[in-house]
Nucleic acid binder design. Structure first.
Lengths: 146, 146
DNA sequence: CCATCGAGTTTGCAATTGCAAGCAGTTCGT
DNA sequence: ACGAACTGCTTGCAATTGCAAACTCGATGG
């Protein structure tokens, strides 16, 4: 869970580099990072920071966004439900209530994501029965302390 | 040059958080990061990794891209000159020559950026006299070894 | 045959990230 | 006034990033 995408981004970088027909050391120089580190990044042994990622992108002359997407650090599109906007905009509830609503809504979304990240339930569908059990549980989200 | 934007992103996060009327701890919980760390990030004492940035963005329900842009880790638009594309596409030169051309072109761009980041010379203009001096200097960029 | 240069990789190590635990100041309810 | 619960901040510390130095393997050439 810690580093599934790390490998993929390394491969992606290596692909791009070889496609540009430049050596590892050369890219390292153009990107302003050390060659050993770049080597490790390409093989998925290290998880580069955003800054390094940005430098590498510059060195490769590709969009930094592309790299971030590959690294799973950015979703290509973030829908960001209207529900949250509505909750935030609502003036008929207290801040406390607002946070409770958001908490609950969040946990629902999180569950759906955990179950099957690809298959988000389409509008009219209910979450699968397996999740329904946990949903009852989460109906009273303990924010952090009781 | 190391951390001018770090402060700004911290402020940005804090602004967004206060605008959402949630406490530091609450955002930390929603983002899945520790509250002390978030505190330090907001005050510019720490430079969060891309992953953390992404989490914070989720916690704030704002686009991760917005945060990256604020952090200076992404340019809102990356023009990425046609020159480079042309050089890369040219089959009448060797890879070695290609790299030399790219190196030189890069160093020119870098100079212009260093001089005045905002005022990039528009097409018909020459770089200002102040820069011209340094340009002569960089006309023979020592890649790394001769 | 040995030196040299180029590829990529391995190996310590300083510096940094990110966290758990704990501290200080406010604002509640009883 | 006191405790509880909130706000944010400071302090060590394990884990990680990112680098300099050195290593391996193949090609070139004297």
């Amino acid at each position: 869970m810690e580093l599934p995408k790390v490998g993929s981004i390394g491969e992606y970088i290596r692909e791009q580099r070889q496609q540009a027909k430049i050596s590892l050391r050369q890219l390292a120089a153009q990107a302003g990072v050390s060659n050993p580190y770049l080597s490790q990044v390409e093989r998925g042994l290290r998880k580069p920071s955003a800054e390094i990622l940005n430098q590498i992108a510059k060195g490769l002359h590709i969009s930094a966004k592309a790299l971030y997407v590959q690294a799973g650090l950015i979703e290509d599109r973030e829908p960001d439900s209207d529900v949250l906007a509505a909750i935030r905009a609502d003036v008929t509830i207290t801040e406390r209530q607002r946070q409770v609503l958001i908490d609950i809504y969040e946990s629902f979304r999180k569950e759906n994501r955990a179950g099957n990240p690809e298959a988000q339930p389409s509008r009219p569908a209910e979450p699968p029965p397996g999740d329904a059990v946990r949903t009852e549980n989460t109906a009273t989200p303990d924010s952090k302390e009781g």
